[in-house]
Deep mutational scan, measured.
Amino acid sequence: MQRVNMIMAESPGLITICLLGYLLSAECTVFLDHENANKILNRPKRYNSGKLEEFVQGNLERECMEEKCSFEEAREVFENTERTTEFWKQYVDGDQCESNPCLNGGSCKDDINSYECWCPFGFEGKNCELDVTCNIKNGRCEQFCKNSADNKVVCSCTEGYRLAENQKSCEPAVPFPCGRVSVSQTSKLTRAETVFPDVDYVNSTEAETILDNITQSTQSFNDFTRVVGGEDAKPGQFPWQVVLNGKVDAFCGGSIVNEKWIVTAAHCVETGVKITVVAGEHNIEETEHTEQKRNVIRIIPHHNYNAAINKYNHDIALLELDEPLVLNSYVTPICIADKEYTNIFLKFGSGYVSGWGRVFHKGRSALVLQYLRVPLVDRATCLRSTKFTIYNNMFCAGFHEGGRDSCQGDSGGPHVTEVEGTSFLTGIISWGEECAMKGKYGIYTKVSRYVNWIKEKTKLT
């Protein structure tokens, strides 16, 4: 034993070699072989497995989906700052455009905790909710729209109204504003409101030439003092309507412009014939205590009207009353817009006519005020429907199939267009061939041609 100890002390290297040989010859039971080890760690190889990531292109799944990435790591994937920024906006807080917040056709661009709407022409605001041009839906104005110097929408209202708090709607500024039905039992019968379409306001006024200088022999019209197929109006439903009495009662109609003036057809009036105007009328054979009678003290036909040349060209006249009318729910003026808007309103496509005229061709006159909704007829169809001249200051309205029309005794009465609950004068009943005849239409004086003249002559002093 002493000898062994001496050998170990003198030859430590020998001992180490012996131990190493023993270990190498022993069977290893701690580690699995290569094949079995792979069965336990069965993990798919990654895209760049075996390579240094710093030297390969980034992978979106590896960089940002398996674990949260930084902007720089995302930049490695896209290799483009702009594309990385677009991805980053949604990656950080989701897609803010998912709810489609942009209105009126706006395009949404996502941002971090926010979004941006790219608005089409005519709109602005956070969600493109603000109209900035009158060309689109009248700028959301209830009545009139004008573009300011910086191309912003400025709404306005006709006389007797003021802008509401929203700067879009119009509200009454006087007790009985024009064009409004205020009798409670008839307010439910107000005709369907007309909503502004998209309009090209630059070209809204037709490029028409008034044929002022045409000389033409007097034409022989049949029954051209021209509501057939209409309905009984309720008291106060058309408070701007008046009836004219002269040699015979209810020979023509008219509309209240203001307390002192009536507008009617020029062919209705004769110099030297006494005319009485009755406002607030409903049943011409009954006294309903809503009527107001006034005498006409002055007749002003349009300066281009000449019955000797043509009885229905420039067929418009103004009547001055001896005493002002007292405005109330049964006696209310009709609204008159400017030339541009009167023309736009007419193009809405349908209007209402009213009167006490004959209820059928050569038949009896109506006792109760009649009204009828009539569609506008395109000019080409209008011209083809008659052998008589249709001037540019006239328009056609009615039904091709016949059966409904204005008729004798309705002449001078109103053709009105309702705009968001307020009625505007767009025409004056003038003439036609018979009444409600198939293929024939009622012919009306186009008020847009005469609004400046009306307003100039009827100013209240």
Results as ranks from 00 to 15, higher is better:
residue 13 G to M: 10
residue 216 Q to E: 11
residue 411 S to N: 12
residue 376 L to Q: 06
residue 82 E to W: 04
residue 101 P to H: 03
residue 170 C to F: 01
residue 228 V to A: 14
residue 203 N to R: 10
residue 268 C to Q: 01
residue 217 S to I: 11
residue 385 S to M: 09
residue 431 W to F: 11
residue 94 G to M: 10
residue 320 E to D: 00
residue 88 W to Y: 15
residue 385 S to T: 11
residue 94 G to L: 10
residue 15 I to V: 07
residue 225 T to D: 15
residue 167 Q to M: 13
residue 126 K to Y: 10
residue 83 R to A: 14
residue 241 Q to S: 05
residue 365 S to L: 08
residue 254 G to C: 01
residue 92 V to Q: 15
residue 453 W to E: 00
residue 78 F to N: 15
residue 28 C to K: 03
residue 55 F to D: 10
residue 242 V to N: 01
residue 22 Y to N: 04
residue 224 F to K: 15
residue 129 E to G: 04
residue 388 F to T: 13
residue 46 R to C: 05
residue 138 N to F: 04
residue 276 T to N: 09
residue 146 K to G: 06
residue 120 P to Q: 07
residue 242 V to C: 03
residue 370 Q to H: 13
residue 138 N to R: 08
residue 159 E to P: 05
residue 386 T to M: 13
residue 197 P to I: 06
residue 223 D to F: 10
residue 239 P to I: 00
residue 384 R to S: 10
residue 239 P to A: 03
residue 318 L to N: 00
residue 178 C to M: 01
residue 34 H to W: 08
residue 411 S to I: 12
residue 279 A to Q: 00
residue 400 H to I: 12
residue 281 E to I: 14
residue 56 V to A: 13
residue 348 F to C: 07
residue 282 H to R: 08
residue 181 V to H: 10
residue 383 L to V: 08
residue 427 G to L: 00
residue 3 R to F: 11
residue 315 D to N: 09
residue 431 W to L: 08
residue 357 G to P: 07
residue 67 E to D: 10
residue 81 T to A: 10
residue 218 T to F: 10
residue 171 E to P: 03
residue 102 C to H: 00
residue 274 K to L: 06
residue 109 K to D: 04
residue 32 L to W: 12
residue 302 H to E: 02
residue 82 E to D: 15
residue 249 D to Y: 05
residue 102 C to V: 00
residue 400 H to Y: 13
residue 52 L to R: 12
residue 342 T to G: 04
residue 4 V to T: 12
residue 237 Q to P: 07
residue 306 N to Y: 05
residue 130 L to P: 04
residue 216 Q to A: 14
residue 112 I to N: 10
residue 373 R to F: 04
residue 436 A to L: 09
residue 240 W to G: 00
residue 193 E to R: 07
residue 345 F to A: 04
residue 53 E to N: 08
residue 190 T to K: 13
residue 275 I to W: 06
residue 4 V to M: 13
residue 191 R to A: 12
residue 379 R to P: 13
residue 366 A to L: 09
residue 3 R to Y: 09
residue 458 T to W: 01
residue 432 G to T: 12
residue 243 V to W: 09
residue 20 L to H: 02
residue 147 N to I: 09
residue 181 V to A: 15
residue 460 L to V: 04
residue 87 F to H: 15
residue 182 S to D: 07
residue 339 K to D: 07
residue 117 C to Q: 00
residue 257 V to K: 01
residue 231 E to Y: 04
residue 252 C to A: 02
residue 95 D to W: 05
residue 385 S to H: 14
residue 207 A to H: 12
residue 349 G to P: 04
residue 320 E to C: 02
residue 438 K to Y: 06
residue 24 L to W: 09
residue 182 S to F: 08
residue 280 G to K: 02
residue 431 W to N: 12
residue 408 Q to I: 14
residue 234 K to R: 13
residue 367 L to E: 13
residue 229 G to S: 14
residue 356 W to M: 08
residue 13 G to E: 04
residue 449 R to S: 11
residue 327 L to S: 03
residue 226 R to D: 10
residue 328 N to V: 00
residue 397 A to L: 00
residue 365 S to E: 15
residue 255 S to T: 15
residue 354 S to D: 01
residue 414 P to G: 11
residue 373 R to T: 08
residue 400 H to V: 12
residue 79 E to P: 15
residue 233 A to G: 07
residue 221 F to R: 12
residue 318 L to V: 07
residue 372 L to Y: 10
residue 454 I to S: 01
residue 226 R to P: 08
residue 212 D to L: 06
residue 199 V to P: 15
residue 215 T to E: 05
residue 269 V to P: 03
residue 258 N to Y: 02
residue 443 I to R: 04
residue 118 W to S: 02
residue 428 I to G: 01
residue 129 E to W: 01
residue 22 Y to F: 15
residue 255 S to L: 04
residue 415 H to L: 03
residue 228 V to W: 11
residue 72 E to D: 15
residue 116 E to W: 02
residue 33 D to F: 04
residue 450 Y to K: 02
residue 259 E to P: 09
residue 362 K to P: 07
residue 419 V to D: 01
residue 28 C to I: 02
residue 288 E to Y: 04
residue 238 F to Q: 04
residue 42 N to V: 11
residue 266 A to V: 02
residue 447 V to Y: 01
residue 419 V to C: 04
residue 163 L to R: 04
residue 150 D to M: 11
residue 118 W to I: 02
residue 313 N to W: 09
residue 125 G to S: 02
residue 297 I to S: 08
residue 186 T to S: 05
residue 171 E to T: 09
residue 98 E to G: 09
residue 255 S to C: 07
residue 120 P to N: 06
residue 117 C to E: 01
residue 296 V to Y: 01
residue 57 Q to S: 08
residue 234 K to Q: 07
residue 80 N to F: 04
residue 225 T to F: 07
residue 94 G to N: 10
residue 261 W to I: 02
residue 213 N to A: 06
residue 83 R to C: 04
residue 397 A to Q: 02
residue 267 H to P: 00
residue 336 I to T: 03
residue 271 T to G: 10
residue 391 Y to P: 15
residue 35 E to A: 11
residue 203 N to E: 09
residue 450 Y to W: 00
residue 36 N to D: 12
residue 455 K to W: 05
residue 219 Q to W: 09
residue 438 K to T: 13
residue 211 L to F: 14
residue 343 N to G: 10
residue 148 S to F: 07
residue 367 L to A: 14
residue 299 I to S: 13
residue 247 K to M: 10
residue 227 V to F: 14
residue 323 E to Q: 13
residue 418 E to R: 09
